Amino acid sequence: KAALFPTVKGSAGLGSTYFNALKADNTRSFFVQSKDNFAQQLAVTVSVPIFNKGKTKRQLKQIEFNKQNIQLSADNERLAQQQILDKLLLELNENRKQYGIAIEASMATAQSLDYTLRSFEAGKASIYDVNTSKSNLIKADSETIRSKYNVVFNQLMLRYQIYGSIN
């Protein structure tokens, strides 16, 4: 809006028009000539913005558009952060469910191994069945560990996203 107001500028200058090309003979010295050829200048400039062809109005409109653009960018960033948080919360809930399922599967597999060992002792199951049950228990335990890791990792990521630190 300052472009709508008049401006005043001033300047001053002092100088000499002394000239002596290659110290020519029969010329007066610098000090003598500077007394004769001393120049002074004083200038004042006044600018009054009467007709600027709507430049100021266009600039004000451009500033308004820039403010709107900045606000939209901030809103987009806020929405992007919200999407990240929603995704992390969804993943955390899904991994917690998966962890609960993995614990149940691990307990069921351990119980199955117990029944297989009893059947082996009774002569109803072979060593192959016992080894298969042990292998299934190891797989179920590793799935439990993996799902627990995923839950902890998602909690840390969520904490980092919210607080900026995992502590």
Results as ranks from 00 to 15, higher is better:
Gln40Arg: 13
Thr17Met: 13
Lys1Met: 13
Lys124Gly: 00
Leu89Gly: 04
Arg96Asn: 06
Arg146Met: 10
Lys57Arg: 11
Thr144Ala: 12
Ser142Leu: 14
Gln40Leu: 13
Leu14Phe: 15
Glu104Ile: 05
Val48Tyr: 10
Thr144Asn: 13
Gly123Thr: 06
Lys55Phe: 11
Lys61Tyr: 09
Glu91Val: 08
Ala74His: 04
Ser147Lys: 13
Ala39Gly: 06
Phe5Met: 11
Glu91Gln: 14
Gly54Cys: 01
Gly100Met: 08
Arg28Asp: 11
Phe120Ala: 12
Gln155Arg: 02
Ile70Ser: 12
Gln111Leu: 14
Glu121Ser: 09
Tyr115Pro: 05
Leu117Glu: 15
Ile127Val: 10
Gly123Ile: 06
Asn95Ser: 10
Gln98Pro: 01
Ser34Ala: 13
Lys1Asp: 14
Lys61Cys: 03
Lys134Ser: 02
Tyr149Asp: 05
Phe120Cys: 03
Thr109Asp: 14
Phe19Ala: 07
Ser165His: 09
Asn66Trp: 06
Asp75Leu: 15
Asp75His: 04
Met157Gly: 04
Leu22Glu: 15
Met157Cys: 08
Gln155Pro: 00
Val152Leu: 14
Phe120Met: 09
Asn150Asp: 12
Asn167Met: 03
Ser16Lys: 00
Val152Met: 09
Leu88Ser: 04
Leu89Cys: 07
Glu77Ile: 01
Val8Lys: 01
Val130Pro: 01
Thr144Ser: 15
Ile162Tyr: 03
Thr56Leu: 08
Lys35His: 00
Lys148Asp: 10
Arg146Ile: 06
Leu85Thr: 03
Ala122Ser: 10
Leu22Gly: 07
Ser34Asp: 15
Pro49Gly: 08
Gly123Tyr: 01
Glu121Phe: 00
Phe153Gln: 14
Tyr18Arg: 02
Tyr128Thr: 14
Arg78Tyr: 09
Asp86Ala: 02
Asn136Trp: 02
Asn93Asp: 13
Thr7Glu: 12
Glu143Ser: 15
Asn26Phe: 11
Ala140Cys: 10
